[in-house]
Structures are given as C-alpha cells and as structure tokens.
Design a binder for these strands. Structure first.
Length: 782
DNA sequence: CCGTGCTAAGTTTTT
DNA sequence: CTTAGCACGG
C-alpha cells in the first residue's frame, strides 16, 4: 500500500519497502504465453525473436527491457532501435509505464529511437572524431536530387544517359551496403561515371556541412569502427541492445548493431522474415535468416500465436505467404473463432471499387464501429484519389496518411531553408532556394554566376555571396547591391537568432524577409492557404519546444528531416485511414480494405518478371492482410484508369492463393475483351496484355454478363455539404467571392450557384482540390 | 527579371 | 491525368 502511494520521483525510498516480485515465473505465466515468457526471461546474450504478425512482439520487447532493468541494468545504458518515430514513441511509453508500475523506475535516460535518430545523436556527440561538425544538417531526398543534379551538370555528364534518379539510386545502394565514395567499386563505364559523381557529391555534402539518410548511418558505422577514443567510448556506452523490425535492417545497420553490442554480447533482435518489405531500400533478409550463424549460441524463440485476427483472416494470410521460399517454415495460429468471411469484390472500374469501399464503410458504421476503425490500403499513392472522391461523396471523414508530405510543400520548404541557412551558413542548397524568395531581384543569371564561383574557387556558397557583394568586378552594380542586401538580411537574422527558440525565430524570418507580407499582398486563396500552412509549422515548432528535453534549432530541423509517413497517423482524428501498404506496417484496424489486387498493380508491374521481387510483393500482401482484426475486404477491377490511360485488369495471383473456405465473393463485372495494347505501349506500364498472359481465375465462375451494382448505393459524385462560415447568409447576399468552409476541403471561394433552400448548389473553388459543385446545406448562420 | 502559357514527360514502395 | 520544366513575351 505504501508502495502504491510512493511519489513517482521518489526512488530512494522505494528501497526501504520490500520490493514486489514483478517478474516472478508465476506472474509471467499469467501475463505471457510460454513462448513470450521464454523470450522475456532468456538471460542477456544473442536472442532472436521470430515474431509473427500480431503475436505480441512489442509486449515481449517491453517486458524483456523491464526485466533487464529489474535485474539491475541501467536504463541509460540500454538502447532500443525501431524503424519509425511512432514505433519508438510507443515503445518508450509502454516501457515507461511497465517500469513504473512494477519496479518504480522510469525509463529516463533510456535510448529509444530510429536508426537514423540514434545515429544523428551519436554523431552530434562524437562525430568530430571523424571530422563531422556538431551542427550538420540532414538533406532529404529532394535535396539529394538537387545537389546531385548540380554535380552531374558540373561534371558535364549527359543527362539522357545518366538520369539523376538512376545515379542516385546506385549511390544510395552503395551507401546502404557500406561502400563509401572512396571505396566505390566500378566494373563498367556507367559505374565509372557514378563513382566520379559519388565522390564529388560527397565532397559537396561535406562542404555544405550536411549529410543524407544513408550518410547518417554510414558515418556512424565509420565512427564506431574507427580507432579513436570516441569509438572506444561508444563501445563502452551500452550494455544491452534491442532491435525491432530486424528483418528490415540493411548491411550498415546490421554492422552498427553488432558493434554496439560487441562488448557485452547482449543483443535482442525481433523480427519476421515474412514482413520484410524494404529490400529496395537496402534491407537484407539474410540478416535475420543468418542471425544464428553470425551469433554462435544464439537463442531463437518463435512466436506463432496470433492475438489480433480472426481465423479466416489468418488462414488467408498463411495461404498467401506459404508460397514463398526464402523463409523459415512458420504457421500462425489463433484461438479465436473463424469470424466473418473475407469478402472479395470484383468490379468493373476503379470507381466501382471506390464506391464499394465507401458504401461498405457507410453501412458498417455503428455505435461499435467509428470511422477510425476502417482502413483502406493500396499499393501506390496514385490510387488514393478515386477512393478519396468516393468517401467525400458520402461525407465520410477520411485522412490520407503519408503521400505528399506536409514538409514537401513549397512554403514549408522555404521557411525550413531559411532556418537551415541561419543554423548552417555553409548550406548552399538552402541558400540557393531562398536567395530570391520572396522575389528580390536576384535572377537566375546572378545565381548561376555565384554557383560558378563556388565551383571554380572552391569556396562555400556563403563565402561567394559575401565576395560578390563587396567585389564590384564580379557582378553589375544592380545585382551586387541586391545580393549585398540579402547578405545583410541573413547576417541580421543570424544575429537575432541567438537566444530565440525555433518558433520565435520562424516568426522573425517571416517578418524580416517580407515573406509573410509578400503572401498577404497576393490576397489569393492559395496565398491564404500557404499562410495557414506556415502557421501550422510554427505551431509544430511550439509543440516541439514544449516536448523536447532540450529544444534547439538543430533538434527541430532534425525532427523534420527524419519524420516518417506513418508518424502523421493519429487515430484520434476519428477518420477513415487511407495509406499505402508500406505505411500500414505496424498498424492494425478492425476493418481493412485492400484495393487494386490486380496483376501489375499488386504485384506491381516492376516486380512481376522477377521471382524474388514477387516474393517481396507477396510479403507485402501478407503484411496488408494481417493488419485486419475482424473484417477483411479484398478488391480488384477489370478496367483501371491510371495516369491517363485505361488498362485491362486481371485478378491478382494473390487472390488465387486464397483458401476456398470462408470467402464470400461479389462480382459486378466480366472479364475484359481481348485487347492488344502492344502498339500503344509506352513507359513501364508498357501495356501489352495478350492472350499468352495467364488468367488467374477466382474461386467461383465469373458470370458471362455484367451484374449491375445494387441500385441506390451511389449518389452523384461531387455532391457534398458545406458548413457555412463566411460573410454571406443564404438567400440574403450569397455572392461570387463569398468564402465558405468545407470540412474536408477547407476554405473556398464561391464562383456561382443555383437553386435555393435544400436544393442550393454552389460552385466553389478550393485551393486544395480545385473547383467543385456542391449541394450546400448551411449548418449555421452568423 | 518575372510571370504566363505551353509542351513534354513520367509515373512503386520511403527512413 | 498530373506535374514539372521550358520557352516566350512583357
């Protein structure tokens, strides 16, 4: 009782009372299944937990971590690595809770984070040992592309033969495998050029005091492997290492983990080869398959009992994944009943599919099922649009997780670029972005000259700016003065930045640069939206300042650079979730729709010719299926419009692999007529679809004639309701130019309207989605 | 130097 | 179909 009342920070006193037995065999037997308990109590040393989907993986990690601490381990000397910030946050929260409940110790000082954030942290502390400054910035892939583009131009490499994307992917692959620019091997002409580009790219990165995603990890590995006092300190730093999603580690990450755990040998990895879906990003499935061989005496525990899904869903998942060969045999089981049958929908077009999804969600809403309980998955981001339209048409709240990121918007990147340039004067890329934003008369010609100067004299962009603003030989008087004014502006901002938090600094930037005034002066809806976005960013900065232990400008910039798609998922939004299958990993929902299950969509066209790529697609499908708790819908269509052209669709091979029991099928289409698309074939979709390609029949015969969709299930698309939030009352002065707010589209401007009362239709232009004609139902009057 | 209008191009998954 | 990049005219 006394213990219950002990204050949270009161650690000394807890020793006075007898300690409870928080992890006694009895207790564990009550809270864990035998396999879970085995993993939790295994003594420190190499341990691989093969955790099937929904088998209580996070539970095992938190219990094991807590038990290590209960046994005397210091939380500050434990590092737990995850793949997303969201997973890291969850792990920290659950570990903290368990530690407090059971042994009155918090998780304070525990290192939990993604590979990238932990690397950044190590580099900021010890990176100087390998010549890295503490204040480096992190370039995202857009920055990488721009930097490499400039490198390729300077090397006079023909763009046709060496597209930036392709060169970058080779460089990235090399980095993921631990090959630095110096060590880059080339066997052919292409790689010779890539090697040259790689070296110059790295040179420029270093000059900009910047690093990229791959570099973050590679530098950390180099640091840890170096013969320096810093490396020895790091080797002493951690007693226990835990790694989540181990199947997705690449070679560099794996070596890093081994170095961190080498001294004590206490390394716990948790993963599932069946859920390895990041091979294209360098993940090496062998890391998990060979773990035993690499760690003599390693213990392996398999978790096969699933606590998430119904029997029908689990059987479907098993039958899909069983076709793979690169895996240890494993079969998930559940003590739950069969549950509802899985529903397969086969429609005519992607609109029918979207409408089916929306109608089922609408019908499924009840006291027990809120919008947040539904998730819709797709293979590629481009597929989300039709689904969004269909949900909108039924007024269902939805939220697209990932996709075009908030941080990718132009105005956000501009502001971030200012902050980066203030934090790090050497960041040429950011300087280039903002030097003429808002327009201050510094044109492309001037920027080019400064860029040439940087290249020719091997100076930083900032030095070049300072140089041309004082030396009247280099630029004409007009441009020179303008550049000088910009230099002065940046100096002033830097001077003012001292002592300001990120949010206050951002406001200063918007004010002093005239950015906000420039937008306000435009007085358009787009500009209004941009200002709103900037305010949102500043609000995020404030939130960061509240949360972070030690908020700094670098800290915020790092958080921005390392934010992941799924980090934006918030169940409390109360909306139907739309996301790619990749983003869905690690999440679960009562009802799941997997759409676009067609050959060349899922599995993707780029994968169908390569057996091992198809295995990855199969794992992806397995991940998608195992997200569902109670109800699973799978859908495919016979004709799909994708980037302009319509292509015929064949049911995915994954549908053919489903068991014949526990499935309900809804068909509203018929197979497409034979069409020879070979003459029109263009690009990767290269639409050949001939008789030679195998048809994958579903389990029931397909009707000869199309069956009409149920009547009354579909409203006219584009009909929506808006909430009144403007400067005109209905009937009493609604006019062109009035502002209205729509729950999904935001504020829009009235273009035209017709009718009145309940039949009032208004045409509105929304900055976000364009012009829409809407059935307006005014909910409130001013 | 800047904004507009057009054409052409490219379309997987993301820390 | 969308978006990005480019040429042109002001």
């Amino acid at each position: 009782m006394q213990l219950e009342l002990a204050a949270r920070g009161d650690q000394q006193n807890s020793d006075a009372t007898p300690r409870p037995q928080p992890f006694s065999p009895d207790q564990l037997a009550r809270e864990l299944n035998p396999a879970q308990a085995e993993a939790v109590v295994h003594p420190p040393g190499p341990l691989l937990v093969v955790a099937g989907a929904g088998s209580g993986k996070t539970r095992v990690i938190t219990y094991r971590l807590a038990r290590l601490v209960a046994g005397g381990a210091d939380p500050r000397r434990i590092v737990a690595v995850t793949f997303t910030n969201k997973a890291a946050g969850e792990l920290r929260e659950r570990a903290d809770k368990l530690l407090w409940e059971r042994i009155r110790v918090g998780s304070r000082g525990l290192w939990v984070g993604t590979f990238h954030s932990i690397s950044a942290r190590l580099l900021r502390q010890w990176g100087e040992a390998i010549g890295l400054r503490k204040d480096f910035v992190i370039y995202d892939d857009d920055d990488q592309k721009r930097l490499l583009g400039r490198v390729l131009t300077d090397l006079k490499v023909p763009e046709r033969m060496f597209p930036v994307r392709q060169v970058l992917s080779v460089i990235d692959r090399a980095k993921n495998q631990g090959q630095s620019a110096a060590a880059f091997q080339s066997n052919d002409y292409f790689d010779d050029v890539v090697g040259k580009a790689y070296r110059l790219y790295e040179e420029r990165l270093a000059a900009a005091n910047a690093t990229d995603f791959g570099g973050l990890l590679l530098s950390t590995l180099q640091l840890c492997a170096s013969d320096t006092p810093a490396a020895r300190e790091i080797a002493e730093r951690f007693d226990h290492v835990l790694v989540d999603e181990f199947q997705d580690t690449n070679s560099v990450q794996y070596r890093l983990v081994r170095l961190l755990s080498r001294r004590t040998g206490s390394i716990t990895v948790v993963g599932d080869e069946d859920q390895s879906i990041y091979r294209w990003r360098g993940a090496d499935i062998r890391n998990i398959l060979d773990f035993e061989g690499d760690h003599p005496g390693a213990k392996i525990v398999k978790l096969e009992q699933n606590y998430r899904s119904t029997g029908n869903i689990l059987r479907a998942a098993n039958s899909i994944i069983e076709k793979n060969s690169e895996r240890r045999p494993k079969r998930l089981f559940t003590e739950a009943g069969d549950g509802d049958p899985i529903v397969i929908f086969e429609g005519e077009t992607e609109r029918d599919e979207a409408d089916f999804v929306a109608s089922r969600i609408e019908a499924g809403l009840s006291a027990a099922r809120a919008p947040r309980d539904f998730a819709v998955f797709y293979r590629t981001n481009a597929q989300s649009r039709v689904l969004e339209d269909a949900l909108r048409a039924r007024d269902l709240p939805y939220s697209v997780v990932g996709g075009t990121r908030f941080f990718d918007r132009a105005e956000i990147k501009d502001l971030i670029a200012y902050m980066r340039a203030i934090a790090n004067p050497d960041d040429g890329l950011s300087l280039q972005r903002i030097v003429n934003v808002p327009a201050r008369g510094i044109g492309a010609a001037t920027v080019d000259r400064i860029g040439d100067l940087v290249y020719a004299r091997k100076i930083s962009a900032w030095q070049a700016l300072e140089l041309v603003s004082t030396d009247d030989q280099l630029l004409g008087t007009g441009p020179r003065k303008k550049v000088a004014a910009f230099v002065e502006l940046m100096r002033r901002l830097r001077a003012e930045s001292a002592g300001l938090g990120p949010a206050a600094l951002a406001e200063k930037v918007l004010e002093l640069t005239g950015y906000r005034d420039a937008l306000a002066g435009e007085a358009t809806l787009e500009a209004e939206g941009r200002i709103e976005n900037l305010l949102e960013l500043i609000a995020q900065m404030r939130e960061y300042e509240r949360e972070a232990e030690e908020p700094t400008l670098y800290g915020f910039l790092e958080r921005v650079a390392l934010a992941s798609d799924v980090d934006g998922y918030d169940p409390d939004k109360g909306a139907v979730s739309l996301m790619t299958v990749h983003t869905a990993k690690g999440l679960e929902f009562p009802v799941v729709f997997i759409t676009g299950l067609e050959e060349r969509i899922f599995p993707h066209a780029r994968s169908v010719d390569d057996d091992s790529a198809v295995e990855e697609e199969r794992r992806l499908c397995y991940v998608a299926v195992t997200r569902a708790r109670q109800q699973l819908y799978l859908s495919c269509v016979r004709r799909r419009r994708l980037s302009g052209q319509e292509l015929p669709g064949m049911p995915s091979r994954f549908l053919r692999d489903l068991p014949s029991e526990g499935i309900e099928q809804i068909v509203t289409s018929r197979p497409p007529e034979y069409t020879d698309y070979s003459s029109q074939g263009r690009g990767p979709w290269g639409g050949r679809w001939s008789r030679d390609e195998p048809e994958y029949p579903l389990n029931r015969p397909v009707p000869k004639r199309p069956v009409a969709a149920a009547p009354g299930t579909r409203r006219k698309p584009g009909e929506l309701t808006v909430e009144y939030d403007g400067d005109a009352a209905p009937g009493s002065g609604l006019q062109v130019g009035s502002k209205l707010r729509h729950p999904s589209f935001g504020v829009g401007e009235v273009r035209a309207w017709q009718g009145q009362g309940a039949d009032l239709k208004v045409t509105i232009k929304f900055p976000a989605v364009g012009v829409k004609t809407i059935l307006a139902r005014f909910l409130s009057n001013p």
